[in-house]
Simulated assay, not measured.
Amino acid sequence: MPEFFMPAETDPHERIFMAFPSGGYTLGENEEQAEAARSAWSAVARAVSAFTPVTMVVDPASEAAARRHLGDAVSYALHPLDDAWMRDSGPSFVRTPDGQLAAVDWNFNGWGAQEWASWDNDRLVAGHAAQLAGAAHVRASIINEGGGIHVDGEGTVLATRSVQLDPGRNPGKSEKDIEAEFARLLGARKTIWLDRGLSRDNEEFGTRGHVDIVACFARPGVVLFHDQQDPRHPDHAISQAVRARLEQSTDAQGRSLELIAVPAPRVLRDAEGWVDYSYINHLVTNGGVIACSFDDPNDQQAAGILAAAYPGRQVVGVDARELFARGGGIHCITQQVPAAAREQAAS
């Protein structure tokens, strides 16, 4: 029996953790850019708070700015921060076989010790969040981030080789080594390996290929995947490879996967090059789906696909362009705490 088990993200949530942008490249080079970042994070927090309580981890130096933007829409927890990507620096919340809450600390090291990243404070965020949630703090034997995995709640996990086998994270580790730790910490009996993430996410300021921008489980046996339909974009070939891999895969229950293509936004480039805008990077929480929008012609179509994939939930679009300009999306800045087993049974 595994030591821990990670519920599906579609299970009920007790709360969502976020972190408020407080410095570095996330705030940008001037106050206008800083306000754009604060406003983007705050818009997501307000959207989430309509469905689930939000705890915002805030660097003490940024408390005034956070309260100015968010007021009483969230609860506040002060802790020094380097950055604001709670999915990655924060823990993955799991449960023990008897239902006790635990927080997996993936030993955050700046997405593989990237030269531009700093993590002296962020490496401690997982332990802080564990304490706030009243969860046991469990340290992994590998380096990973929450954006590097996606589970179905029935023993299957999606991951990319470019992240898990990254020499900056897990030098010398094999797929079997990673799978053994996924089994211990997530209750995973089957890992579906994708080779890599999207093009821009594999460039200098990316994560080296997080899966949560490429594919995710809508429910057991059903996977949404990023479908870049324009052959001019380098992610077109990646989308085709992802589709082919998923078509050949089965989950932990032995089922073939039902695939749902989610077309990429039509915009292909920004000032920095090929975009990695993706509707896959959404948050499902209680009665809502907090979805990325891009002021793009495909926003409405994507929202319709998400509404069909998550019946009974309200899809709320939040402009994610300022998030993606800084390296991620809505899923990247949020981290769910699963509700207690008795609450799940009653929901």
Rank of each mutant, 00 (worst) to 15 (best):
F5H: 14
P7I: 01
E9A: 03
D11T: 13
D11N: 08
H13R: 06
E14V: 03
M18K: 11
G23Q: 13
G24V: 06
G24R: 12
T26A: 11
T26S: 10
S39L: 15
V57A: 11
L70P: 04
A73Y: 08
G90E: 04
R95M: 13
Q100F: 11
D105A: 03
N107C: 13
W111G: 03
A113Y: 00
A113N: 14
A113F: 00
E115A: 11
S118N: 09
N121H: 15
Q131C: 00
S141F: 00
G146T: 09
I149F: 02
V151A: 13
P167N: 01
G168T: 07
N170V: 05
G172T: 10
G172Y: 04
K173S: 14
S174M: 01
E175K: 06
I178L: 06
T191R: 07
D195N: 10
D195Q: 14
R196C: 12
N202V: 00
E204W: 06
G221S: 08
R232L: 13
H233C: 13
L246N: 14
Q248F: 01
T250M: 09
A252T: 11
A261P: 15
A261W: 01
A261I: 06
P263T: 05
R266P: 03
R269V: 11
R269L: 08
G273Y: 01
Y279W: 03
I280A: 03
N281L: 04
V284L: 01
G287P: 07
D296P: 05
D296Q: 03
G304W: 02
G304Y: 03
Y310P: 05
Y310S: 04
V316W: 03
G327P: 09
G329M: 04
I330L: 09
C332S: 07
Q336L: 09
P338N: 12
A339L: 01
